[in-house]
């Protein structure tokens, strides 16, 4: 079954997002940082969508996306960035890394369940 990978160094955000998604019948796995996320993506082919923070220790979110595309050679995986800031420079980097879009925090669950389910197929 298709899963969502939630990558955030903040346990609060991880819990909030994953609890919400699980409550709406969407399976979830979590990762603490980009490095962790990259490993999970590599090992779990059920992950069909990644919702990731940008600023994280060890490896930031955008670097993770770039590595998913580059090292893992996975161009099909949908990635949505969860962020508090969005500027043209970041957007540009995200676009070239194939980021599907940006969710600005705070995460408003109700509006996005349908879209997330659509992305999971």
């Amino acid at each position: 079954m298709a899963k969502v990978l939630v990558v955030d160094d903040s346990a609060t955000v991880r819990n909030e997002v994953s609890t919400f998604l699980t409550g709406n019948g969407i399976q979830c796995v979590v990762a603490n940082d980009g490095q962790d996320g990259l490993k999970k993506v590599q090992s779990d082919s059920d992950i069909k969508l990644v919702i990731s923070d940008v600023n994280m220790p060890v490896m930031d979110g955008l670097t993770m996306v770039e590595k998913i595309r580059g090292e893992l050679n996975n161009s099909a995986l949908n990635v949505i960035m969860l962020t508090t800031e969005s500027n043209p420079k970041m957007k540009e980097r995200g676009k070239s890394a194939g980021v599907k879009g940006w969710i600005v925090k705070p995460f408003n669950g109700d509006a996005v369940v349908g879209s997330i389910k659509k992305l999971l197929g």
């Binding site: 949505i80 500027n87 599907k100 940006w102 996005v112 349908g114």
Partner: peptide
């Protein structure tokens, strides 16, 4: 930030950020 994350992005982002 929301406007920036919306303009030029996938229409799906409207659901995520318009609130």
């Amino acid at each position: 930030t929301a406007a920036n994350a919306l303009l030029g992005e996938d229409e799906m982002m409207w659901d995520f950020n318009s609130h």
